[in-house]
């Protein structure tokens, strides 16, 4: 291994970036194992006490379950909306689908608070307020840009000639989809689902403005607790987020080519 100054500089810089990104997480993680009720860092005594309390608390568990339900449904809806759009773009070069994808992408780019206001006004007008499905449908639309871009990456990996070859062998559109497209797309669909799921479960502002008073998701509950002062179980909730997020993306890196998914098309050697 050559250790020239450039290499040391590079490693050092990246090390500092990693440290910066990891620091708050390490703090929360270690505080969650602290035995005392007072928030103190570094922790003084190791204990799983707050984990027991968290999982035994009805309100926390209800929030967790609610958040998981919302995230699962929102991910399902947004993937199911994005799939026909991206398929129509890829297979038929449909202009209408490109327009829909453009709107989806633009929504992802407007400031979160504006989206939240738009959607809360919308649900207010419909008179259908404070319901779980409001959060589901709102998350699905705001996060639509993610499945749109990931599924597009996936479709681009399928050579159109493969589909045409299937046609020449007597396949109809539905057969080609089932035998050529679906197997190639499965990892991308899974990744899109995971990504939306993780972002939905972490989202605060939209959930709060759309149905926050009645549908208390995990982030809303954490924030509410924060306002009332420090509570060690909050750290446990935070750790649950971290564990879910990092294991979801680790899973994603196992089922798909992560560098490619994030936009690298140039081949990358091992």
């Amino acid at each position: 291994m050559n250790l020239d100054p450039g290499m040391i500089l590079r490693r050092g810089f990246l090390g500092l970036v990693a440290l910066f990104l990891a620091a708050p997480l390490i703090v929360v993680l270690s505080v969650s194992f602290n035995a005392t009720r007072r928030m103190s860092f570094p922790p003084t005594e190791f204990s799983l006490r707050w984990y027991g309390e968290f999982f035994g608390d009805y309100a926390w568990m209800a929030s967790l379950e609610r958040s998981l339900t919302i995230a699962g449904l929102a991910a399902l809806v947004s993937v199911m909306v994005a799939l026909p759009i991206t398929y129509a773009i890829w297979r038929y070069q449909a202009k209408a689908a490109a327009v829909l994808a453009g709107i989806g992408g633009a929504l992802f780019l407007i400031p979160g608070v504006v989206a939240a206001l738009m959607l809360s006004a919308f649900w207010g007008v419909t008179g259908h307020v404070g319901r779980l499905e409001n959060v589901v449908l709102s998350h699905a639309i705001v996060l639509l840009g993610i499945p749109l871009s990931l599924l597009m990456v996936g479709f681009r990996t399928i050579d159109q000639a493969q589909v045409e070859a299937a046609y020449t062998m007597g396949a109809r559109d539905s057969d080609a989809f089932r035998m050529v497209v679906r197997p190639a797309m499965t990892p991308y669909i899974l990744c899109a689902f995971i990504f939306v799921f993780v972002l939905s479960i972490n989202e605060y502002l939209i959930a709060y403005m759309v149905a926050g008073f009645t549908v208390q998701t995990l982030p809303i509950k954490i924030f509410a607790s924060m306002r009332q002062g420090y509570e060690p179980t909050m750290c446990v909730a935070a750790v649950i987020f971290m564990v879910m997020g990092f294991s979801a993306f680790t899973l994603m890196s196992k089922v798909a080519d992560l560098p490619r998914l994030m936009g690298r098309t140039r081949p990358l050697e091992d």
């Binding site: 990104l21 997480l25 990504f195 993780v198 972490n202 982030p219 990092f246 993306f249 680790t250």
Partner: peptide, 12 residues
């Protein structure tokens, strides 16, 4: 994985 994990963590 590290970046995606920390990116998705709730602002809360």
């Amino acid at each position: 994985v590290f970046l995606l994990g920390s990116l998705s963590l709730s602002e809360v």
